[in-house]
C-alpha cells in the first residue's frame, strides 16, 4: 500500500461504507439523477456500491496525491466498473451530464463524514477534501470520455453502414451498369462512389454506365461537378456514361447554376436511360404481342 494523502477518506469509506453508500444514493435522488424511471432501486444500488468498492481498492493501492493518475494500474478495476456503468446507463438513455452528476453526488456524503471526523483539524480537512475532490472529478471526466467514445463508435459504425448502402453498382445487363445515387453527395462520398464504379467497369468490362439521380434531392454546383468528373473518368476508362433521373427542377437548377454537361448524355428517367444503354450495346426491348 502506497502512502496516501487521503487516508482519512479511505478509513471512512471502509468503516462507514453503508452510510456513504446511502448518502450517495440519497444525494443522487435529491439531484434527480437517480433515474428510477430507467433503473430499479436495486440496480442503482448495485452499480453505486460496486463503484464504491472499486474506489476503495483504487485509493488503497493507488496514488491520490499530487501524482494521482486515473490511467495507472491500481485504478484498473475502477475504470472497468466506470466503463460498464456508463455504457449501461448511456444505452438506457441517461445523458452525459446526468452521468457526471451521478458520480459527483459522491462528494457530499464524503465531505460531511470528513467534516465530522476532522472538525478540529482545519488544515487536514481542506487537504483531504482537495485531493478526494480531484479524484472524484477525474471519475466524472472519465465517464464523459467513455460517453463520447461510445457515441463516436456509433457514429463511425453508422457512417460505414451509410457508405455501404450508398454505393451499390448494379449490373443491369451484359456491359450495362447502373449506379443509383441516393441522398447527398459530398467529396468523400463522390470519391468512394467513383472508385467503386471504375473498379466495377474494369471487372465487368462494361461499356455503358447509367448514373441515376432519381434519389438525389438537390443538385448544387458541387454535386454537378462530381457527376461531370465521374462521367469524364468513365469515358477515360473506355465506357460511356448516361446520366438519368434528372427531374424538371434539377434541370432548371443546373441551367441556372450554369453547369455545362458537355458531351455527357442525359435522360429524364432511368427507363429511357436503360433503353438507350441497351440500344448502344446492341439490344432492343420488344413487346411480345407486337413481335
Amino acid at each position: 500500500m502506497s502512502e496516501t494523502e487521503t487516508s482519512t477518506v479511505l478509513s471512512i469509506l471502509r468503516e462507514r461504507f453503508d452510510a456513504i453508500l446511502d448518502g450517495w444514493i440519497s444525494t443522487q435522488s435529491d439531484e434527480g439523477v437517480q433515474r428510477t424511471d430507467l433503473f430499479s432501486h436495486k440496480e442503482g444500488r448495485e452499480q453505486t456500491s460496486s463503484l464504491l468498492r472499486a474506489m476503495i481498492t483504487g485509493i488503497a493501492e493507488g496514488d491520490t496525491g499530487s501524482r494521482f493518475d486515473l490511467s495507472s494500474e491500481p485504478w484498473t478495476e475502477l475504470r472497468t466498473v466506470l466503463v460498464d456503468v456508463t455504457q449501461e446507463r448511456s444505452a438506457r438513455g441517461v445523458s452525459p451530464s446526468d452521468m457526471a452528476s451521478f458520480v459527483l453526488a459522491l462528494k457530499g456524503p464524503i465531505f460531511f463524514q470528513l467534516q465530522e471526523l476532522l472538525a478540529d483539524q482545519a488544515g487536514e480537512l481542506v487537504e483531504e477534501i482537495f485531493f478526494i475532490s480531484r479524484v472524484i472529478d477525474a471519475f466524472a471526466v472519465y465517464c464523459t470520455e467513455v460517453f463520447i467514445a461510445e457515441r463516436d463508435r456509433i457514429i463511425e459504425q453508422q457512417r460505414d453502414q451509410m457508405q455501404e448502402l450508398s454505393t451499390p453498382v448494379v449490373e443491369l445487363w451484359d456491359k450495362v451498369l447502373t449506379l443509383p445515387l441516393i441522398g447527398t453527395m459530398d467529396s468523400a462520398r463522390a470519391q468512394e462512389v467513383m472508385e467503386n464504379l471504375l473498379e466495377t467497369i474494369l471487372q465487368r468490362q462494361s461499356e455503358v454506365v447509367i448514373v441515376d439521380l432519381t434519389g438525389v434531392q438537390t443538385v448544387d454546383t458541387q454535386v454537378a461537378q462530381h457527376m461531370l468528373r465521374m462521367a469524364s473518368a468513365v469515358r477515360l476508362m473506355g465506357a460511356e456514361c448516361i446520366i438519368s433521373g434528372i427531374s424538371p427542377t434539377i434541370a432548371q437548377t443546373m441551367v441556372q447554376l450554369g453547369v455545362d454537361v458537355g458531351e455527357v448524355t442525359t435522360r429524364s428517367t432511368i427507363r429511357t436511360g436503360l433503353a438507350d444503354a441497351l440500344n448502344r450495346v446492341g439490344y432492343e426491348i420488344v413487346h411480345k404481342a407486337k413481335q
Binding site: 468528373r229 473518368a233 476508362m237
Partner: peptide, 11 residues
C-alpha cells in the same frame, strides 16, 4: 486499358 486510379488522377 486505362486503370481506374489513372482515370481518376487525370480527371
Amino acid at each position: 486499358g486505362m486503370r481506374p486510379a489513372v482515370a481518376m488522377t487525370l480527371v
